[in-house]
Simulated assay, not measured.
Amino acid sequence: MSDDTHTPTDNAATVSEPSATAAPSGARVLDVAGLSGGYGQIQVLHGLDFHVDDGEIVVILGANGAGKTTTLRAVSGMIATTGSVTLRGEQILGKKTPDIVRKGVAHVPQGRGTLPELSVEDNLRVGAYIRKDGEVDADIERWFDVYPVLRERRNQRAGSLSGGEQQMLAVSRALMSRPDLLLLDEPSLGLAPLIVQDLFARFAEINKETGMTMLVVEQNAQLALGIADRGYVIESGTIAFDGPADELMHDDKIRKAYLGV
């Protein structure tokens, strides 16, 4: 995806109403222990241990090939793994991806993952396919308020949107399932710096206003740590460093290796 040239909208409405399944503050949403896995004979993850608490933004950092994307794919049930992955105390390791979605995990993959032939609105309706309540239309309008440009494009094919608009749609579509946990894989990939700054500002706003729990894989370490509560650094499929985002931001080793300073 080439750099996006869409100018961020400054008048997006404040997000309201927390997720219907929100847990008490501080509750453990995701607990991963001894997670190992990969692709065929290639082992990528080697006994990862990490957790995400309710309402947190947690970032996973690391060099290309370190295992960041594979970690999210493992949590979503997309690859064969061993170890333990629990969501609000329930074991989800070994479950199929659609069942994990129904349990409350929404995954925005690298490269957006919108359905290009469908309209913006139909993409959002697809995101709500697991729901049986009567509030889908209200949620569509809710995310149109957060990303007004999507309302302007509601009948437009998703494939004709700019890169930044597609990322907004991908995030909104994931949130239409009212997840307990939102996984974001390299959301800044291929986007212009101003678009990326706006995108991350909206992530922080959504988290603050709704309490949405997020696990973010990101190459732009400085920007990601700027909105995160905590972070983990993966090296060769293992956790090399972890701690509060502010501490990682000011750790000399991490600054030199991942922040370029």
Score class of each variant (00 low, 15 high):
Asp10Ala: 15
Val101Trp: 07
Gly159Lys: 11
Leu225Gly: 01
Gly113Ile: 05
Lys132Leu: 06
Asp145Ile: 07
Gly164Asp: 10
Asp54Ala: 12
Gln197Arg: 11
Gly89Ile: 11
Val196Lys: 04
Leu48Ala: 06
Thr14Cys: 09
Asp10Pro: 02
Pro24Tyr: 08
Leu48Gly: 07
Gln156Lys: 14
Ile100Met: 12
Ala204Thr: 10
Leu61Thr: 08
Gly94Ala: 05
Glu141Lys: 06
Asp185Leu: 05
Met249His: 10
Leu150Gly: 07
Gln91Val: 06
Tyr258Phe: 09
Val59Asn: 00
Val217Asn: 00
Ile92Phe: 12
Asn155Ala: 12
Gln43Ile: 06
Arg88Thr: 10
Asn64Pro: 15
Ser25Tyr: 06
Gly83Val: 12
Ala221Leu: 05
Gln197Ala: 13
Val216Asn: 12
Phe203Pro: 10
Met1Lys: 15
Leu124Gly: 04
Asp3Val: 15
Gly65Val: 04
Lys95Tyr: 13
Met212Glu: 05
Ala158Gly: 03
Asp54Phe: 00
Gly94Leu: 12
Ile100Ser: 07
Gly260Leu: 09
Pro109Gly: 04
Arg230Pro: 12
Val15Met: 10
His6Gln: 09
Arg173Cys: 08
Gly226Glu: 07
Glu121Met: 01
Ala174His: 05
Gln91Ser: 14
Gly127Glu: 00
Leu124Arg: 00
Gly104Val: 09
Asp246Tyr: 07
Ala128Gly: 12
His6Glu: 04
Leu61Pro: 09
Asp122Asn: 14
Gly40Leu: 06
Thr7Ser: 03
Ala106Arg: 10
Leu118Gly: 00
Phe144Ile: 05
Ala170Trp: 08
Lys253Pro: 02
Ala138Asn: 03
Phe203Tyr: 11
Asn11Asp: 10
Ser76Cys: 10
Ala63Lys: 09
Val233Leu: 06
Arg73Asp: 13
Gly94Asn: 02
His250Met: 08
Pro148Gln: 05
Gly164Lys: 11
Ala27Val: 06
Ser177Ala: 07
Gly47Asn: 04
Gly113Ala: 09
Ile254Gly: 08
Gln156Val: 15
Val171Gln: 01
Ser36Cys: 05
Thr9Arg: 07
Gly190Asp: 10
Gly226Cys: 00
Arg102Gln: 14
Ile234Ala: 14
Ala201Gly: 12
Gly164Trp: 12
Gly77Ala: 14
Ser2Thr: 14
Pro179Phe: 02
Glu152Thr: 13
Ala66Lys: 00
Phe203Arg: 01
Glu247Pro: 11
Pro109Val: 01
Pro187Ser: 15
